[in-house]
Nucleic acid binder design. Structure first.
Length: 489
RNA sequence: GGGCCGCUAGCUCAACUGGCAGAGCAACCGACUUUUAAUCGGUGGGUUCAGGGUUCGAGUCCCUGGCGGCCUACCA
């Protein structure tokens, strides 16, 4: 503990005085009978009976022999009334001399309405459950310092009710997704976070080390390759909701660790997955938000299925004016991209250029849409379109101007998969740090036969951003990644 | 990586062109028997993010660094 400030000194002194009086400021047990919301809701039936509520002492209006206070618990707020006639002088003295705003207390008394009609517990007994040594943030303005909100999320949750609402919605999003998938025969599994080989996405990994095995390990960048091994094993529908880790910069859409839902459905293709995605998202929106129209960044986004299914090439051409299909080589496409006023890395490959075009298209995709049929260069694990060898059966789903899902008909041809890995390895040797290494065991698994499969990756954080109108991924992650501060211990 | 902005009391914010660091809430002392941002009177509280420089004098100007936000780039 640092050198206490003035307000901490005051509270520490009260702590000592309490102990001298034989009062345990941190007793091990409480005996709450009702939450604040229950008392408010059942006020008429409870009137005249005795209830015990518990929570944080939030505000206090001291009128001499009468003190009003607000108590906040997980369910809401209830007013407390302390009167010398009802509670007695000892309780009044205890309240005034030893308690501070922020303390966790337990109050026993009778539910009633105050003169102004406010639901109130008329207190007879008062027990301190946990003494607070730090003062609460400003109760009127809340906590506005963005950095403090992220670093000390407990304060943010305490004083900013809309923040609590976001994370309750996040929890319901996850549980509704599980319920939806479980009901459709998907099996939830867990695959390794620590991997000797990483893959399934284009990203640089975090590296760590296993001391006993004397072995370098990677934190997974995706769950894809392990989940598909399970399909080889005969699990026909699997999913995993878990953290992926990508060693790259942060932004309003990127956090180094983020939550991904991946699922794989045997005997399905990417068309089936589109049906699933729009229905799943609509289901979650309905359960979590109560409706299919969400406000996001000053737009109204209508998630009602069906969502348009449009070729990537066509939509990019509409938004940027560049038809990459008319430019089969990188040089020609680079000139067209430059002419459209879009900057790209000098010497970019054709895939990178198309990616650049997509980045410029993405912010315009406000209403939900599936973009279909990606160039093969960008998709090492997707199956080719039978009638177009340069494209794969892949889609990404967009809404609110952000990508929320990525899916394809999975490549299950081991020989071609092996060739695609070799291409990745070659790219890697040519300097592409995001290209994944060759995964021999994965190819070997495919050699036993994997059914035709549709697979999906859905960014949970981004879905929650959309459903809660959160402008930054940090607003939907309880403890987003922050630099450590030199001044902090 | 680049640009812009920010960091002042526990919290929210002021402080003009460089001239005594302030307010509200919170805290402390006091008054008040139905308030709800209670009210009223009084008191205390500062490494102005850190370090250096310019100056008679720096929260303010200059330099270096830290952390954060936004934009941009890179990256999925």
């Amino acid at each position: 503990m640092r050198e206490p400030n003035e307000q901490q000194e005051v509270r520490l002194k009260k702590l000592d005085q309490l102990r001298e009086r034989g009062v345990d400021p941190y007793p091990p047990r409480s005996c709450r009978t009702h939450t604040a919301a229950e008392v408010v809701r059942q006020l008429d039936e409870l009137s005249g009976s005795t209830v015990t509520v518990a929570g944080r002492l939030w505000s206090r209006r001291d009128m001499g022999r009468t003190v009003f206070a607000d108590l906040v618990d997980g369910s809401g707020k209830i007013q407390l009334l302390f009167r010398v006639n009802t509670a007695g002088p000892e309780v009044m003295d205890f309240l005034k001399s030893y308690l501070d705003l922020g303390d966790i207390v337990q109050v026993t008394g009778s539910p009633m309405r105050s003169r102004t009609g406010e639901p109130t517990v008329d207190a007879r007994e008062l027990v301190l459950l946990a003494k607070a040594l730090n003062p609460l943030p400003d109760k009127w303005h809340g906590l506005e310092d963005v950095e403090k909100r992220y670093r000390q999320r407990y304060l943010d949750l305490m004083v900013n009710p809309e923040v609590r609402e976001v994370f309750l919605k996040r929890a319901r999003t996850v549980s509704e997704m599980r319920r939806y998938l479980d009901e459709r025969g998907f099996v939830e599994v867990e695959t390794p976070v620590l991997q000797t080989l990483y893959g399934g996405a284009s990203a640089r990994p975090f590296t760590t080390y296993h001391n006993a095995l004397n072995q370098e390990l990677y934190l997974r960048i995706a769950t894809e390759l392990y989940l598909k091994r399970l399909l080889v094993g005969g699990l026909e529908r699997v999913y995993e909701i878990g953290k992926d880790f990508r060693n790259e910069g942060t932004s309003t859409k990127h956090n180094p660790e983020f939550t991904m839902m991946e699922l794989y459905q045997s005997y399905a293709d990417y068309n089936d997955i589109m049906d699933l995605v729009e229905d799943l998202v609509a289901h979650i929106a309905r359960e979590v938000n109560g409706g299919l129209v969400v406000r996001f960044r000053d737009h109204e986004v209508d998630l009602t299925p069906p969502w348009p299914r449009r070729p990537l090439r066509e939509v990019i051409r509409e938004v940027t004016g560049v038809d990459y299909g008319a430019h089969p080589d990188a040089g020609s496409l680079a000139r067209a991209v430059a002419k459209a006023g879009i900057e790209a890395r000098p010497g970019a490959t054709r895939g990178e250029l198309i990616d650049e075009l997509l980045d410029n298209t993405e912010p315009h995709l406000i209403q939900p849409v599936f973009l279909l049929d990606y160039p093969i260069e960008l998709s090492p694990f997707a199956k080719r379109k039978p009638d177009d060898p340069g494209a794969v059966e892949r889609f990404e789903a967009f809404a609110g101007g952000i990508e929320i899902a990525n899916a394809f008909t999975e490549l299950n041809d081991p020989v071609e998969q092996s060739a695609r890995f070799r291409r990745q390895v070659a790219d890697r040797e040519a300097g592409s740090e995001e290209s994944a290494p060759y995964d021999e065991d994965f190819v070997n698994a495919l050699m036993y036969g994997m059914p035709p499969t549709g697979g999906l990756g859905l960014g949970m954080d981004r879905l929650v951003m959309l459903l809660t109108d959160s402008p930054s991924i940090r607003d939907v992650i309880l403890f987003p990644h922050m630099r450590t501060r030199a001044s902090e211990e």
